[in-house]
Design a protein around this nucleic acid. Structure first.
Length: 419
RNA sequence: GUGGGUAUAGCUCAGUUGGUUAGAGCGUCUGGUUGUGGCCCAGAAGGUCAUGGGUUCAAAUCCCAUUACUCACCCCA
């Protein structure tokens, strides 16, 4: 039997209410902050991601689902939304229509990694991107927005980490200082970290190996080598967060894996999921638009993993979903009345009443059991003596009360069901 | 890509040191007097014990391989 591809999941009817609920929270919160939804294609030219995210990043170097289409173009299933959003922003000159564009999205993403708890090959993110402002106000808003959604979902065991990566000039200067510090310890580093020494030295801070952490414990920090303006920007962001009563920790070792980040970066972590504890990550990317061939555009955004968030909700039992039910179940007592029963269902469905009935020629008992299982508010019984006397029986399933209606008085039945 | 764990009914799992026709709970279906749910009761259906090989008189059980799932590393949402 053919099964779903490794790392992909079917979202079955039983799980849909959770997804819908989360999506409704995302949608309404985004509206509160006046972010507008954007939808971009599921795949793009490969060059968009390799240039935007960075050739040396793991995403581009080993995780992308890329293939050559029949016209010979290399295309890639989107591994994240920022590059696509910036592409669409530039392609449609959104920046010329207004100074600041506040956009959000909910979309599947694709990365070919080994799956584990909270990590899939097709996964789903929601996120926001604000393009056009360099003000620290919008940096803070991103964090407040992400935090707002996560707290509306009832998650408690979370932690916000923020950091600033400053501007490339000061970062390059700092990298030289860091290299000088690490050089004497180079041989003691793990193999992975020795590789990072050349490719992306900042990420040695991320290493979970005790040995590496011991070495990096006393390393000079980027935050102590920021230029004055970056530092001031960062201070302002923190002040706004303080006033918004958002709790956060400054983590000078928070280094994010994508090349395009500048200034503020942040993550929201949960202790309610497995090792993949980042529910949400984001930061400022002032240089990306230019790098992709557009006008320089200051911008910031975040992305949040829906599967991870739902996993945390599950583990914290934070979602209070309404129970599923239907308005009316039509029970036919005689098989000869199947057509009449169906006719009634059509009429009530046209009145926007949720109706179900039996399609398997089952007994009255079985139909009643089904109605009960479906949490039907009412059952309409058709057949028997009452039907011979041109009556229908409407049973309230909660109170067991039965009311008789004239067979042509469907309006009264409808009234009863609605009220 | 690397390492650990797991694989028995639709689901969650038992299965004793290898020993008859492989079990339970839940779910499904049918019924518990002619026409009515929940609770309860009775019955039924449903399994190539992941797949392929090996050891043995005998394998769900032991060994090997494969596949899938899962957790962790790398990295990320």
């Amino acid at each position: 039997m053919i099964k779903a591809i490794t790392g992909t999941k079917d979202i079955l009817p039983i799980d849909i209410p959770k997804w819908k609920y989360l999506e409704s929270i995302v949608e309404s919160t985004m509206k509160t902050f006046n972010y507008k939804e954007i939808r971009t294609p599921i795949f793009e030219e490969t060059a968009l991601f390799s240039r935007g995210i960075g050739e040396s990043t793991d995403i581009v170097s080993k995780e992308m689902y890329s293939f050559v289409d029949r016209s010979g173009t290399s295309v890639t299933l989107k591994p994240e939304m920022t590059a696509s959003t910036v592409r669409a922003f530039m392609e449609h000159s959104l920046g010329k229509q207004q100074g600041l564009n506040k956009l959000y999205y909910v979309s599947p993403m694709f990365r070919q990694e080994r799956p584990q708890a909270g990590r899939y090959r097709q996964f789903h993110q929601f996120g926001a991107e604000a393009l056009g402002s360099h003000e620290p106000l919008i940096d803070a808003e991103m964090i407040i927005l992400a935090h707002r959604i996560i707290s509306r979902l009832g998650l408690n065991n979370i932690e916000i980490k923020i950091n600033s990566l400053g501007i490339p000039e000061s970062r390059e200067k700092y990298k030289i200082i860091l290299k000088e510090f690490i050089k004497p310890h180079f041989e003691k580093l793990t193999e992975d970290s020795r590789k990072r020494f050349d490719t992306n030295i900042l990420r040695i801070f991320d290493s979970k190996a005790d040995n590496d952490q011991q070495i990096m414990k006393d390393a000079p920090l980027l935050i102590d080598h920021l230029d004055e303006e970056s530092l001031k920007h960062f201070e302002t962001v923190k002040q706004i967060l303080d006033k918004a009563k958002i709790k956060y920790d400054v983590d000078p070792k928070l280094v994010r894996g994508l090349d395009y980040y500048t200034h503020t970066t942040f993550e929201i972590l949960s202790s309610s999921v497995g090792a993949q504890s980042a529910l949400c990550g984001g930061g400022r990317y002032n240089l990306l638009a230019e790098q992709l061939g557009g006008n320089p555009t200051p911008a910031i955004g975040f992305a949040a993993g829906i599967e991870r968030i739902l996993l945390a909700c599950e583990n914290e039992k934070s979602l209070n979903l309404p129970e599923d039910n239907i308005d009316l179940y039509i029970v036919r007592m005689d098989k000869e009345l199947t057509a009449e029963a169906y006719e009634l269902s059509v009429i009530f469905r046209n009145e926007n009443i949720n109706v179900e009935l039996d399609y398997l020629s089952r007994s009255v008992k079985a139909q009643m059991r089904e109605a009960n299982k479906l949490n039907a508010k009412f059952v309409l019984l058709i057949g028997g003596d009452e039907y011979a006397q041109k009556k229908l029986v409407l049973k309230n399933m909660e109170t067991s009360e039965q009311i008789f209606f004239d067979i042509n008085d469907l309006i009264s039945i409808k009234e009863k069901i609605i009220n």
